[in-house]
Nucleic acid binder design. Structure first.
Ligand SMILES: [Mn+2]
Ligand SMILES: [Mn+2]
Ligand SMILES: [Mn+2]
Ligand SMILES: [Mn+2]
Lengths: 218, 218
DNA sequence: AATTAAATTTAGACAAAACTAAAAATAGGT
DNA sequence: ACCTATTTTTAGTTTTGTCTAAATTTAATT
């Protein structure tokens, strides 16, 4: 498995290409920051290796083997992110870039030992689940803050957009995973929310609310 | 800097190509497990970038910039080796292969934090010195056990051959860095040594003795 | 000094992963 | 059903790092 092949599999998985849902050439090209013609070439190569299903003009989906491989890369990526935050004091907006490199290190023992050192975390710093060695992971029932009804409370458990600018914005406004949020009011005009959190009240835009996941309290 | 360029610089350094000592094409090819013609190609490219001095048929040596780069790769390699041993319980014969990959991860912050986590170690698990950020490192006055005079004592501080088979042999015979060794007798016939170490006596071949570094006691 | 052996470089080719430009297939709108 | 816009594929290049085979230079030996 080359680094490039691994990145393609990971991206196809993230675009939903597991469960034999076909993903378009253009969608993959956009995520890979490459050209559609390059995606076609790689689709053929991965199909040759039995990692994806590919029929001309019909898009690409992962085989079981391809899904398994994608999950093992994602497992490594997220474990390294946890490592960087918990053991090396990186902030959650700095880890993704480095994890993009570390995820390609080939050593089963290494990642198992990292997992052990971190005491087998189930979620990464952005709230995304960490697949186990055999490719299983928790699906947390969560919803976007923008879809929570007025008056309801929830715990912030993840971000949808994990870009550095968004994460830095959250830091600046002291919004962090684990905080409890109550929706006080929704502004009809611009969909902004008035929320209560950790003993203070603040107003956040729809754009922010639709990139924050909360787990509703029972 | 590509991974391949980094590996070439590291190998030229290890062959003594710092201090403007020219290293032959063949020697580099052998270490890189590649063909001499490939080395010539790379020599041109590295010369183009100002990392090596290269004149046709005259061998290759590192420039100051090339030496600096080589030392930063070696620094990363050795720090990762310490990390693997101290934090993840790898044995000293398992770390080299993984460090060969980790040494190419590009993040200044990452390696500085690893350095800090390890409390700024000065030597790697094989007794090799770890260069500082500015490329300085300790030169320990050590000598091969095979060159120690009869009756003299020394502390085992490093290995010359750090291949897995040799390291495993040392483990099996409970020879480890930090142990004090006294040479009791040298066998004229096969140059084997009779030594005392940690309260027991044993006989070791010349081949072993000439791959173990000791620091003589004053 | 001439010959031979060894080391090194050149020339041409290849695989991986990307690109551009052109051709082909699909999907939408009338 | 036809035309058009979009998507996708093909064909032909490029770059990086390698290779083989042939040519050249250097070193060693007579
Ligand atoms: Mn990647
Ligand atoms: Mn993440
Ligand atoms: Mn390397
Ligand atoms: Mn070492």
């Amino acid at each position: 498995m080359t680094r490039s092949e691994e990145n393609y599999l990971k991206i196809i998985f993230h675009l939903g290409g597991s469960n034999s849902t076909p993903i378009t050439t253009n969608a993959i090209a956009e995520q890979m920051e490459t050209k559609p013609s390059s995606v076609t070439d790689m689709a053929k190569k991965l199909a040759e290796k039995g990692l994806v299903n590919y029929k001309k003009y019909q898009g690409v989906s992962l085989t079981d083997q391809g899904t398994k491989t994608a999950l093992s890369i994602i497992r490594k990526h997220r474990l390294w992110e946890v490592f960087l935050v918990k053991k090396l004091d990186f902030s959650w907006d700095e880890v993704h870039e480095v994890a993009e490199q570390l995820e390609h290190i080939k050593s089963e023992k290494l990642i198992d030992k990292i997992d052990e050192l971190l005491e087998f975390p189930k979620f990464d710093p952005h709230g995304d689940p960490i697949p186990s060695k055999d490719g299983k992971f928790m699906v947390r029932d969560k919803q976007l803050l923008s879809e929570v009804a007025i008056g309801d409370k929830g715990v912030c458990v993840g971000v949808k957009d994990s870009s550095a600018p968004f994460l830095k914005f959250l830091d600046k406004n002291k919004i962090a995973l684990g905080h409890t949020i109550q929706v006080l009011e929704k502004e009809d005009f611009d969909q902004s929310l008035h929320i209560a959190m950790e003993g203070r009240e603040l107003r956040i835009s729809h754009q922010i609310a639709s990139n924050l996941y909360v787990k509703k309290n029972e």
